[in-house]
Design a protein around this nucleic acid. Sequence first.
DNA 1: TTGCTCCTCACGTCACGTGAGGTGGC
DNA 2: TTGCTCCTCACGTCACGTGAGGTGGC
Lengths: 252, 252
Amino acid sequence: MLTIGQLAAYTGVTVRAVRHYHQRGLLAEPTRDSSGYRRYDGRAAVELIRIKTLAEAGVPLARIRELLDAEPGEFGEAVTQIDEALRKKIRELAQHRRKIAELAGGERLFLPPEIVEVLDELRRMGVTERTVQIERDAWILVVAMSPEVIPEWVSVKRAALDDPEFRRIYVLGDQALDWDPADPRIAELADAMAAWAASSREDTTPVDENSGNLAAVALMSSHIVGSSPSWQRLNDLAQKRLEELRDSRDPA
Amino acid sequence: MLTIGQLAAYTGVTVRAVRHYHQRGLLAEPTRDSSGYRRYDGRAAVELIRIKTLAEAGVPLARIRELLDAEPGEFGEAVTQIDEALRKKIRELAQHRRKIAELAGGERLFLPPEIVEVLDELRRMGVTERTVQIERDAWILVVAMSPEVIPEWVSVKRAALDDPEFRRIYVLGDQALDWDPADPRIAELADAMAAWAASSREDTTPVDENSGNLAAVALMSSHIVGSSPSWQRLNDLAQKRLEELRDSRDPA
DNA sequence: TTGCTCCTCACGTCACGTGAGGTGGC
DNA sequence: TTGCTCCTCACGTCACGTGAGGTGGC
């Protein structure tokens, strides 16, 4: 007859696990010898390996007892389910392998592909990584808060990126991160931004159709503006200039 | 800015998990708004997805912080390790699938293949499943207690199974399970067993070379003998008869 | 006699889950 | 005002791991 240690070694589980299975009522307590030691026979080993096989496959201990006591038909059904769960787990792990591999690299992990493409386009324009990341973080906020506006926002952004003047302004804006807030080029750039905004107003859909949009617009711009003092100044000046342009066009 | 619920929804983790990561120092606590609510920016979302990706890959939370703070080289090395661990896990799960599939069926799960073959040979001889299982459980005890004797025992068993007389005796022994302990055929069978044992003694290696063996022999026979009253009687008679045979051959 | 195995509590671990009791935003 | 979200404790869960303190077998 086997001691608990021999049983554990044979079946490849720990002694503690065997005791645990006794406690949970999974494995019947065997008879004791004169010293109070548990003594096991071959049938206990067979049963324990069954328990181990199911437990390792991820079956909760609470379900294993009923499974082992089930009819062959019911048992076979359960085995099919367990196998399906294992296959699912394997697929998930394969997926995790892919995601881990992407960890070092890009934002495919964080954003929908159409936005990733917009960011890649910015990189092709020569925009520095710091600005791309500010833009990326802004998109993350918008996707998280108002995912429904994404298709429209992306198409507006794409249209803008088709305009050479917008591209020129964007690249300059990127470089402005290094400028002193008092740099005269900032005022110049602000004028160009305001002019572009005023002209493009006509042929792009207004984005402030609902309050969700408004909040998202406010959020995104505050995020971007908050990234640097020179951008803050740039925004203030452009805003002022845009109002002047409006007033001159539509006098109250 | 995102609330904890929006952040959780965006990254696909639970709100509780986000708080847990704060507690563990994995994710920096963000600023609070006027109501004491946590408010997150895009960078927090990026960081949380990194944490989630590593955590789902099985990296202990205690290691994730140091990993994310590590140099690119060190990080890449760790990623390689994690990927290897994931591949190992996948292999294990595939192995579990195979074992689960065998659960309903045979003893390949419980015994080394050479013993499985011996059991299959018994079945081909027409031995009933109840006896095969008694034999199987006996082998399990021996493998668990004295794995070193297995090669020799298997070869002795195989040699015996090559002898038609042994096969005849074994099949009768199987049928004896149904006999009354007083059945006259039991004495007859016991004589045949003793005769076979006496004759085979000469050309098979003695199995009692050491105490480990002796214990295993005692164990195996007591297990088998204890399986039924008719076998008990069979064994008693055969033992007595064997002694008589010995005494008549080697008189003291 | 020493070292190894066995015994029974019983607390610890890991990554959160789940109320408990209370407050803020729409 | 109601329902949903947020807040902080703090205990619960799952499958054991890990001593703590003691005894039996070789």
